[in-house]
């Protein structure tokens, strides 16, 4: 029965990415570019680990004990993810929607497998815990955020970006990069339960990051005619 639960949580974590790959027309282009994006994710993480070793030991692993400075430092290391993702984007030719989707799907697949894979594997164990379902839902949120970031980075790299929109793009990128500080910090201070936290994170990712980015992207697409 525990294998059944493992199947459930894996389906919850993986199928949304598969749907995105299958039904957005990406499958027509093959998996090569997606694998490339995933490999660059792994390389970026290795670089990040190297950099994190130079940081002072302010990073606290205990989630109940929120360390503002430590989180800030960690988030600034996360900026390296943006560099990696921008590199992925630069390696994929063309300027269609699929370019962005390829990068986002490749990146988030690798991220979900490597960061959530081990935790989800434990769902096979005899012990039941809601944490596995929550981690799966978190990886769904991660997918939305990765798509948004890819979009924003592409917009950021465009020279023909509307000048009015440039500060918004930068602001959104920074807001996403330091999400762990301001969003998690606020939720922790408010003392909200895990499930409500997940719902709020999901709502923030869709309505505060996703939809505004989609609007900016549509605007750009309109301008360059894709």
């Amino acid at each position: 029965m525990t294998l059944f639960h493992f199947g459930n949580v894996v389906a919850l974590a993986v199928l949304p990415i598969y749907f995105l790959y299958k039904f957005s027309g990406l499958s027509e282009y093959g998996l090569t570019k997606i694998f490339h994006a995933g490999s660059i994710y792994v390389f970026t993480q290795l670089c990040k680990m190297l950099i994190l070793t130079f940081f002072p030991e302010t990073i606290n692993t205990d989630p109940a004990d929120f360390n503002f400075l430590g989180e800030c430092l960690r988030c600034s290391a996360d900026l390296l993810d943006f560099v990696g993702l921008a590199f992925v984007l630069s390696k994929i030719p063309g300027k269609s929607h699929s370019k962005l989707l390829t990068a986002a799907v490749g990146w988030s697949s690798a991220e979900i497998i490597l960061s959530k894979g081990l935790i989800l594997w434990r769902a096979r164990g005899a012990e039941f815990s809601w944490i596995y379902t929550q981690k799966s839902l978190e990886s769904n949120i991660l997918l939305v955020v990765t798509c948004t970031v890819t979009c924003l980075l592409w917009l950021f790299s465009r020279h023909d970006l509307n000048r009015k929109h440039a500060p918004i793009v930068t602001f959104l990128l920074l807001a996403i990069a330091f999400k762990a500080v301001w969003l998690d910090g606020t939720l922790l201070v408010m003392g909200i339960g895990t499930w409500t936290c997940l719902a709020i994170k999901m709502a923030v990712s869709i309505f505060c990051f996703g939809l505004p980015t989609l609007y900016l992207y549509a605007n750009m697409a309109q301008t360059i005619g894709i």
Binding site: T2, F4, S129, T133
Partner: peptide, 20 residues
């Protein structure tokens, strides 16, 4: 170990299916 009944996983599967 804390375990859930088999019915629970079926129920969870149903909810996950709807969500997906």
């Amino acid at each position: 170990y804390k375990v859930k009944p088999a019915l629970f996983d079926l129920f969870l599967l149903l909810i996950i299916c709807c969500y997906l």
